[in-house]
Simulated scan of single mutants.
Amino acid sequence: MIGLWDTTGNEVVKALAAERRSAGGVASGLALSLIAVVEERKVREAEAAATIAAAAHPCRVLIVVRSDLDGRSRLDAEIVVGGRLGPAEAVVMRMYGRLALHAESVVMPLLAPDVPVVTWWHSEPPETIANDFLGIVADRRITDSAQAADPVAALKRRAEDYAPGDTDLTWTRITLWRTLVAGAFDTTEETVVGATIVAPPSDPTAALMAGWLAARLGITPVLEPTDQWPRMRSVQLQCANGDCVTVTREEGTALFSRTGQEDRYMPLPRRPVGDELAEELRRLDPDQIYSEALGALAGIKHLESRPPQRVHIWRDPAQAQRAEAPVGAYAGPGGRAV
């Protein structure tokens, strides 16, 4: 590992190239560049997730930590090639002051050549992705609405702000649920006429599951709230012939029940973030099924027909703070109302 303190972007580029040469790195062996936007307290979590994802998709990981926007502009960097991050090449960049608002000036020269770019926010999702240039340069953008203060509202905001290439880890977390539910109809052509989802009111996976069922089956699922479980508990489908199909979460498994058949237990583990991230990195084209489910959740049609390109909309947090300052207050240094 190489540590560079109070450095410049050019020095980081030179140090990465030198470390790659000494480690025998080959740029053509990289599948993509992964930009991870994280908070300081989640850097180790992001590194652990990137290590798992890089085992399946060798990549260059660029971790951006924005801190202290009011302080002096400074860049600290750690460069790791191999080592604790497995096959990944990683640069952890801590940006302070106004530099943090222009992270792309440091990140762009570090992108691996001729490979796709994925930006992943391991933090509360941005209100508008176009405000962050790191989202504009990406071919694929991964958010995590579960980290927002109101996860369901954050998912609906993702629909309003959607462009092809966007996805959310909430969608990835219901992959196994969708597989179990869809597999129940491999051997029958019965029409589904209703669905009931038991989950906490704030669970975004339940909301997106309802959107998926609505988009796929043309029904309006009923969300049955519960405070007894921290996550989605069960999904029940009612068929036109009176049969019911129910998937109920147990500890690491799912109880699969169907009218007229014996109950079965199927695997339903809670996966680490690294596995969820690796799943999303398997595809770099727009996910139309996700866009339809998200649109059904938010009541917005034809998300997939939106243009995939965004235009960067500059937003200065200091100016926003001045605009929000109460009447009679004035903005002090750094835009703080005093």
Rank of each mutant, 00 (worst) to 15 (best):
A49R: 10
T51M: 07
I52F: 04
A54M: 09
A55G: 09
H57G: 12
P58I: 02
C59S: 11
C59M: 15
R60K: 01
V61D: 01
V61Q: 08
V65L: 11
V65A: 12
V65G: 10
S67L: 15
S67R: 07
D68C: 13
D68T: 11
G71N: 11
E78S: 07
I79C: 05
I79V: 10
V80T: 15
V81A: 08
L85M: 14
G86C: 05
A88L: 00
A90F: 09
A90N: 04
V92N: 01
M93H: 12
R94T: 15
M95N: 04
Y96N: 05
Y96A: 10
G97W: 02
L101A: 07
H102P: 05
H102S: 07
H102F: 05
H102G: 05
E104R: 12
E104M: 11
E104C: 09
D114K: 05
D114R: 06
V115H: 09
T119P: 09
W120F: 10
W121T: 12
S123E: 14
S123N: 10
P125S: 12
E127N: 06
N131W: 03
N131F: 01
D132N: 04
F133N: 08
F133W: 06
L134S: 08
G135T: 06
D139W: 09
D139N: 15
R140L: 14
T143K: 02
T143R: 03
D144H: 11
S145D: 13
Q147S: 08
Q147D: 09
A148L: 00
A148I: 00
A149F: 06
D150M: 07
V152T: 10
A154S: 15
L155P: 12
K156T: 04
R158G: 07
A159V: 08
